[in-house]
Amino acid sequence: MRRLPLALLLIAACSLPLIPGCGDDDTSPQPPSQPAPDGGTPDGGGTGTPDAGPDAGAGDTTAPSVISSSPAEGTTGLYPVEVYYRTTGQAGLSERKVFTVEFSEPMDTSVIQATLLNLTDSTATPRSVQGTWAADGRKLTLVALQPDEGGPVLEEDSSYALDLKGFRDPSGNPLDATHPGLGDGRLDFKTGANDPLLNHACGHTLVDTVLPVSASATPTGTVPRTDQTHKLYEVTMPQEGSGYSGYTRLRLAPETAYVLFLDHEVSVALSTSTDGAPVDSSIETAPPACSGITHRVLFTAPDAPEVRARFTSPDSKLRVILEESF
């Protein structure tokens, strides 16, 4: 048999696909080419820099603002206290003042404290006021309590500012102090007069046992009394037409000023028991010192044995407290 030259054998072998080591370059199997990363391709179709994605960018730079508050910015005549029953710590009657602030966007709810400044008394120490956030992170309720050293929550007839500049949104943007809602990042207001007698009566609505009274349909005969001061009466009136009306009687010190506190607005007519002569009185809306008192009747007792009080209301029940004026 004729033998082929060695060179021809090598050429024939290299034509087979599974023989490694042939040719000038390494022809070992290579992994398939991979697609280029997002944002760039090997053929020059991009820069080669990874794509930042749709959520990337400079971030939130919009400053939050106050869109509403209670009291409103610039309020005057704000009643300086609210009487309430404290259930935490040493339970009992106490005073506070509640503020609410609503922001234009959800806020960083880890910040819960504002600073209360007395602008009338420059020697007064700024006070911290703690707050609680609503679930949406936009509404904050702040409660000012009585100072540790004693005294009212807020002084009457004084200017105050609730500094809110420490609040920010989750991106760290501070409160917009130039927004018309506040102007300077502070909630400014002025208090009105305090009424200790009203505050005292509010205490009775919160802790006293109710004394039930059934009013008489007529001013004569058996008419129940509602003339003890410092007592919380609940008067039930008989029906009259589409509403309710009834009488109670009051034995009072002559020529003495009294206040009759009410839990809702009703018609009140006072007259003497002897001849039915009307007794001058006036009814007015009470400052919001507590939820149990909304109106009050002011009058001076005449020089008469008794006074009849006629209550007329669309409701069958009425709570009243009689107090002698200070």
Rank of each mutant, 00 (worst) to 15 (best):
L4V: 07
L6Y: 10
L6Q: 11
A7M: 01
I11P: 08
A13P: 00
A13T: 11
A13Y: 03
G21I: 01
P29V: 13
P35H: 00
G46N: 10
T47L: 05
A58G: 06
A58V: 08
T61E: 02
T62G: 05
V66I: 12
I67Q: 01
I67D: 14
S68F: 01
E73P: 04
E82D: 13
Y84E: 10
T87D: 14
T87H: 06
G89N: 09
G92L: 10
G92V: 02
V98E: 12
E105H: 00
E105W: 00
S110I: 02
Q113K: 08
A114I: 05
T125L: 10
P126H: 01
Q130G: 07
Q130I: 02
Q130E: 09
A134L: 04
L140R: 01
E156H: 05
D163L: 00
D163N: 03
L164H: 03
L164P: 05
K165T: 14
F167A: 12
F167G: 01
R168A: 15
P170M: 12
N173I: 03
P174Q: 12
D176R: 12
D176N: 15
T178M: 08
G183V: 09
D184I: 03
G185C: 09
G192K: 11
G192N: 04
D195S: 11
G203L: 08
H204M: 09
L206N: 10
V207K: 11
D208V: 00
T209Q: 07
V210T: 15
L211T: 14
S214P: 02
A215V: 06
V223M: 08
E234R: 14
G241P: 11
G243P: 07
Y247E: 14
P254C: 10
P254H: 08
E255G: 04
T256N: 11
L270R: 07
G276F: 01
A277I: 06
P278K: 13
P278L: 09
V279Q: 13
S282A: 15
S282P: 01
T285A: 15
C290W: 04
H295P: 14
V297W: 05
F299N: 11
P305D: 14
A309D: 06
R310W: 00
F311W: 12
T312C: 10
K317L: 12
R319A: 07
L322I: 11
F326N: 15
